[in-house]
Simulated scan of single mutants.
Amino acid sequence: MRVISIFLLSVLVFSAKAEHVFSHGFEQNVAMRANQFALADPHLFLSAFSACVDITPQINDAIQDQIDGDSEPDGFLDQNILTRFLTDRIADISSRALKMDLIDGTCPAPLFSGACTINGVAAMDIDTNADANNTCLEADQATLSGYSPAPNVAIAPCYVSEPIDTNLDFGGAIIPVLGYQQAAQYNGGTVLSNGLRKAFITETAAENLVFPPGTPVIGGRTLASLLAGGTDSCPMTDDRDLFTDGTTSGWWFYFSTSSDEVDLQ
């Protein structure tokens, strides 16, 4: 199984991308770094002071801080998730079937002040498909619970990865997921926009995932206890879904994303 570092990620917007010159040369890859990564559905809840509080905004703020920040500081951004496409032209992402790798990397602070480096490859040789005319990926409306904002829709021209079963890092706890996919729109320049990533977490896996004790706010709790419909959860609603087999109970997770092109060595 493959491990993708996904959960505590967020936004970084670089305001002077036009000044950055990318030097692919004969390198057969284009690397994209998530600059926005927000949980859109389902939401997470915590019982506090006799109330059931939606903590998703706080989780997404923490995601933002990790993408933006160098908290140590050590000259490197705290969290990076990189996708490497096996081509030397960014336009190929939305016009050709490609292979992609999911990379755990290190990027300098500030971003674009140097190249990102590879710590490890989380998943390799994932097939992607391009579409110039149709939507590449969107949430199944039957699995959404009406939270706002709704998950992004990856519209044409765009790419979408083939679904894979893998592992996600949720705040330091590893959990198996089914049907992981990612997609985004490319409209020129150095940005992938309207990105969407989805994955199914079974009810059993969510019950078995316990956040490390040192995790702020949710340490020692199970993922299921934070989700509507999970054991010991506080909402009176039920956000549980079924997997594509029509029988496996769990939750479809949807993350809205966008990405910047970065140098990767």
Rank of each mutant, 00 (worst) to 15 (best):
I218K: 02
P157R: 07
I6K: 14
G220C: 04
I174M: 14
G230V: 04
F14Q: 02
T83L: 12
G179Q: 15
S23V: 13
F49I: 10
V121K: 10
R2V: 02
P42R: 00
A34I: 08
I103M: 03
D238I: 07
C136G: 06
I126P: 01
E138L: 01
C158M: 06
L137C: 03
D104F: 06
G171N: 05
I118C: 01
C136I: 10
G25M: 12
L226F: 01
L144N: 03
P213Q: 12
R84T: 01
S10D: 10
I81S: 12
D241A: 09
V3C: 03
L223E: 05
S95I: 03
T202G: 04
L111D: 05
T257P: 04
E162P: 01
G146I: 06
M236S: 12
N29H: 15
L227Q: 02
Y147V: 02
F211C: 00
L46F: 11
I218V: 15
N152A: 14
S145R: 11
P216V: 00
R84A: 09
T106P: 05
P57C: 03
C107I: 00
G69K: 03
R2I: 06
T204P: 02
S71E: 11
V21S: 05
S5K: 14
N134H: 07
S47F: 09
F7V: 02
I174G: 12
E162K: 06
S50Q: 15
R240T: 14
C136M: 07
Q36L: 10
